[in-house]
Design a protein around this nucleic acid. Structure first.
Lengths: 161, 161
DNA sequence: CTCACACCTCAACAAAGGTTGAGGTCAAAT
DNA sequence: ATTTGACCTCAACCTTTGTTGAGGTGTGAG
């Protein structure tokens, strides 16, 4: 099997797909959306540096907990584009990402509590219920383009071919 | 303003939209997908029973933490369809839903830990890293139809017109 | 040099979760 | 009786996150 020639730190798209568990088409997609970058070989084929594997791992792990690519992209934009990110670069990003995860965790825990106190208690009181009263500051956006609310990913069923 | 005639326990779509903070089109959509049900007036207009408000609150709260409608629907299918769900019915559903939320929380906490130990430490060791090695049992599904992985919802920006 | 496999681009399609709009009806206040 | 805002259906469109396929090229082993 003819494997494209690569220097030590260059990976073909197929190789990245193989090692990251992400399909080639998804990698193309990530690249088109600026989550990863590549150089090109003489024959116009993509060559990825090794740290792309780390980026992809970060992307997938984040996606599995339901974070949209746009947000992940923003986080990755915190890495230097000029040079290969070092440990400190990643640490900085990871730290900010932890805060993001904390928020997500908080929200879930809050819902769990609300559910217990509002419905689980059996009183079914929906007056002044925290579950019901979420439309406080929410419905004040007016019409126009807005983010959609797609579902959550589930790692056990969504993976590349 | 002509407000449709309703008995004490009947609500029009507009009324449900107003009180739940969900758009009319979204309510139509939920109904088309079996998350809520309605009877019809003589003139073919929807009439919702009051417990629809609770269902919708449950739906939105669950969506805000990234759970897909299909899963929410399954949970709601645990309620009796013949009669109006009582406190006990809701309690049962809430209990099972709590387990679901627990799983989601666990997954987020695991990612946060992995991030700290794998990247945050600074070593950047990706060999045998838990972040990287998620493709263990995942890439064994083969091709074919599979769930897509849309993003996460964010309550602060997504609401009806 | 040739062959096969990996790669390229670009367009079309998919599924979730809706929104928007056209064209028509209901209902209640005047 | 008229009018006006709420409602109806249905189809088209939107975003996100990709996959699939067609038609063509690169690359390395033999």
């Amino acid at each position: 099997m003819p494997r494209a020639e690569t220097t030590f730190h260059e990976l073909t798209v197929g190789r990245v797909a193989e090692r990251s568990g992400v399909s080639v088409s998804a990698l193309h997609f990530y690249e088109a959306n600026g989550l990863i970058t590549s150089t090109r070989s003489a024959g116009n084929q993509r060559r990825y540096s090794r740290d792309t594997l780390r980026r992809v791992a970060f992307i997938r792990a984040s996606q599995r907990v339901g974070i949209p690519l746009a947000d992940i992209r923003q986080a990755l934009d915190g890495l230097p584009q000029a040079r290969t990110p070092n440990a400190e670069d990643w640490s900085r990003v990871a730290e900010r990402w932890r805060e993001r995860l904390d928020e997500n965790i908080d929200q879930l825990i809050r819902l769990r509590e609300d559910l217990a106190s509002c419905i689980g208690c059996g009183c079914l009181s929906m007056t002044a219920c925290r579950l019901t009263n979420n439309n406080d500051r929410l419905s004040s956006e007016g019409p126009g383009a807005r983010r959609l609310m797609p579902g959550t990913p589930r790692a056990d069923v969504a993976e590349q071919a």
